[in-house]
Design a binder for these strands. Structure first.
Length: 198
DNA sequence: CCCTGATTCGC
DNA sequence: GCGAATCAGG
């Protein structure tokens, strides 16, 4: 892969948006985050005011403007960085937070039993897989939404409306959002579903 | 351990 | 110019 104008543009755009080098690399494909960072530097658009940088000198920026009163500044973008650029998408089957309940007399904290994500009720899933899940969920790391990463299982466990809710959090399978056990019940090959009535 | 960006340096 | 290896911080 090479840095075509298009790819460079995507790079610039994403970098400006505060995306991390690794995210940009994944988006572009065919390059590593190192490549992205290297390019970013070569392009001269380095420092952003975000995330985890490293040794950050308190901006030793102090160009002596002795001989240059700086003419009328033009369209040169001063590299605005107001927002910390929040995560584009936490990527998680997060249970939508119910509204603050308008009615005070609402006893029912949960709108109506329904959000309960996947939880394929012992249905068309292979018994073995279900058994596995049952065991695994006892070992769940019980992560909160914010603690999830791309390598943690995002399978929701429990009722989102109660404190009894967390995410599996075990090591997720490469490229999958869930751990092995949950992948087992989440991704049923259509072929397997077919004549599962066996 | 996971992640982040920064730098170096052979190609 | 490129980017893997390495470094350094969170």
């Amino acid at each position: 892969m090479s840095w075509t104008d298009e790819r460079v543009e995507t790079l610039k755009k994403m970098w400006a948006e505060g995306q991390s080098a690794s995210q940009i690399a994944k988006e572009l494909g065919g390059v590593t985050r190192n490549a992205v960072i290297g390019k970013v530097h070569r392009l001269g658009l380095s420092n952003r005011t975000a995330g985890s940088g490293k040794t950050e000198e308190a901006a030793p920026e102090k160009p002596e403007q002795t001989a240059k009163p700086a003419p009328a500044a033009k369209a040169e973008a001063p590299r605005p960085r107001p927002e910390p650029a929040p995560e584009p998408r936490p990527a998680a089957p997060a249970a939508a937070a119910p509204s603050p309940a308008p009615s005070p007399a609402r006893k029912q904290v949960v709108p109506a039993g329904q959000p309960l994500p996947p939880q394929p009720s012992a249905n068309e899933i292979s018994p073995e897989a279900l058994a596995k899940v049952g065991e695994v969920e006892k070992k769940a790391r019980k992560l909160t939404l914010m603690e999830l990463t791309e390598r943690t299982c995002k399978w929701p466990i429990g009722d989102p409306a109660t404190e009894e809710f967390w995410f599996c959090g075990l090591p997720a399978q490469q490229g999958k959002p869930y751990c092995e056990a949950h992948v087992g019940v989440a991704f049923q090959p259509m072929s397997a579903r077919r004549d599962r009535r066996r």
